[in-house]
């Protein structure tokens, strides 16, 4: 991977990381977007879309309500695409998915640390905030934004480093190990996506709509 590619992925992963909560929430943090753009940046569009789709299914099992703690898949997807690119073999995307899932754990934990750091900053500034000091208000808020940017950059850097370390050993793996890990990643993603859907749709009435959709999708599959 070239220095330019590393810089591009680091920048993209940082944007993806801050989009999740702090800035915009334009959904570039969705794996399907994060992975595809990461793939475009390093000439691995197919792997980017594949890993994006896999992590998008994992994402279906997450509902980001209120203060709930959840894994973060955006930077993980970027790391997964990087790992797949570095290994440079067909079916390496299963290993890429493994890297992405590990980074998802750390990224989720880092969100909790960020929120605690923000809370400490708010507590320190509480008297000024209660006095309506606009400068302190802006400083606390900008401090939070800066902290999240550093967090996202750090997590992406960790992801790229992990991808590089894993790729050194994974490049020599027998082909059937790559197939096995890819099949496991795809199966796990399908399980997560369908479990998330069942949680989402809840009532029996909606199962009819699901059945209708399944019938239509199967028909298209038949025709296509």
């Amino acid at each position: 991977m070239t220095v330019l590619e590393i810089v591009l992925l680091l920048g993209w992963g940082t944007l993806v990381g801050v989009d999740l909560v702090s800035v915009g929430q334009l959904m570039i943090a969705r794996p399907i977007v994060a992975g595809t753009i990461a793939g475009l940046l390093i000439g691995e569009v197919e792997a980017g879309i594949r890993l994006g789709l896999i992590f998008e299914l994992f994402q279906f099992d997450i509902l980001p309500f209120g203060a709930v703690r959840y894994p973060e898949y955006g930077p993980g997807t970027v790391a997964g695409v990087a790992a797949t690119h570095l290994i440079g073999r067909p079916d390496a995307w299963g290993i890429g998915a493994g890297v992405g899932l590990v980074i998802g754990v750390f990224a989720g934990a880092s969100l909790h640390w960020l929120r605690e750091a923000n809370a400490r900053a708010v507590r320190r500034a509480a008297p000024a905030l209660e006095a309506g000091d606009v400068r302190v208000l802006a400083r606390v808020h900008l401090g939070g934004l800066g902290r999240d940017m550093r967090r996202a950059a750090g997590i992406t850097a960790l992801g790229l480093l992990t991808a590089w370390l894993v790729s050194r050993d994974a490049a020599a793996l027998p082909p059937h190990v790559l197939v096995a890990t890819s099949a496991a990643a795809a199966g796990g993603a399908l399980a997560a996506g369908v479990a998330g859907l069942f949680r989402l749709i809840g009532s029996r009435r909606n199962l009819r709509w699901l059945a209708a959709g399944l019938a239509a999708g199967t028909a298209v599959l038949w025709i296509a």
């Binding site: 079916d91 996506g193 859907l197 909606n206 999708g217």
Partner: peptide
């Protein structure tokens, strides 16, 4: 929510085929 169920149901067979194709 019914729309989500319908569209996800439509997507699922296509996604399964696409994932297992390789």
């Amino acid at each position: 929510v019914p729309a989500v169920a319908l569209v996800f149901g439509f997507a699922l067979p296509l996604v399964v085929r696409w994932l297992v194709q390789p």
